[in-house]
Design a protein around this nucleic acid. Sequence first.
DNA 1: GACCTGACGGTAC
DNA 2: GGTACCGCCAGGT
Length: 107
Amino acid sequence: MKQDFYQKVYNLVKKIPRGKVSTYGHIGRALTGGNSARLVGMALNNCPDPQTPCHRVVNRNGELTGAPHFDHPDMMRDLLENEKVTFKDGRVDMKKHLWVPQSQVNY
DNA sequence: GACCTGACGGTAC
DNA sequence: GGTACCGCCAGGT
């Protein structure tokens, strides 16, 4: 089933360590090999699994674009702050918390 | 089966 | 450094 792609997204998102955040671009790139960042968002939009830390997925700018899709718009930021994730001008400090699937074992 | 949309990214200006 | 336009993949209508 094509929706297997969704499962891949969830699987990768679940691998994001606590206190780290990833971007749609990196995830989509690791899955399709292209810039399918939108697909990641689309997959997370379905997120049938509450265990999926979709709050750890932000855009390239570090903005919590998916926040309004949560039960509460501030829930996303609250969860990240709870994981010691620092914010810069209302955005995630990508410089410190940026996590990439490919560098999960190297960096 | 075709067209449009979507939690975005990258490059160009 | 910020804004604007184009591009990519999959799903939904």
